[in-house]
Amino acid sequence: MPDVTHSLTAAHQLAYTYKRSLGPVLGRFFTGLRDKQIHGVRRADGKVFVPPREYDPETGDAMEEMVAVADAGVVVSWAWVKEPRPSQPLAKPFAYALIRLDDADTPLLHAVDAGSEAAMSTGMRVKARWIDEPAGAITDIACFEPG
């Protein structure tokens, strides 16, 4: 006979404390962030990948020529987040955007603090807002903002 008592519930957290080794290319990228600089990697034909990739996605050749790029660029695509979750970059509504930085040929995924969805548009210019004490992580860029 099923009874009518409510099911007991309990909080259950599953956590994995991963660390990953970065290697020379991504290591340079994250070391640069600590200095408030964004680096890409340049292929032989001059194409600049940001974030940097260790291997050419077309030929598989290793790429290792690191170049600094601007911390401002153009939104090439975006999605509005109405209700941010706790682990997301901003506590208020924001856009996840693919941003092609000046001097770069591929877009970087980051958050844009535009204030409202209406203020977002493809092609808009944005620039990085850095945190005060960068530590060598993508979160050293708090977000991008219009301008």
């Binding site: 956590a15 990953r20 080794s21 970065l22 290591g27």
Partner: peptide, 11 residues
């Protein structure tokens, strides 16, 4: 140089 990145996964 930054050589290691912490990437915890918490569910």
């Amino acid at each position: 140089p930054v050589e290691v990145l912490r990437t915890p996964v918490v569910l």
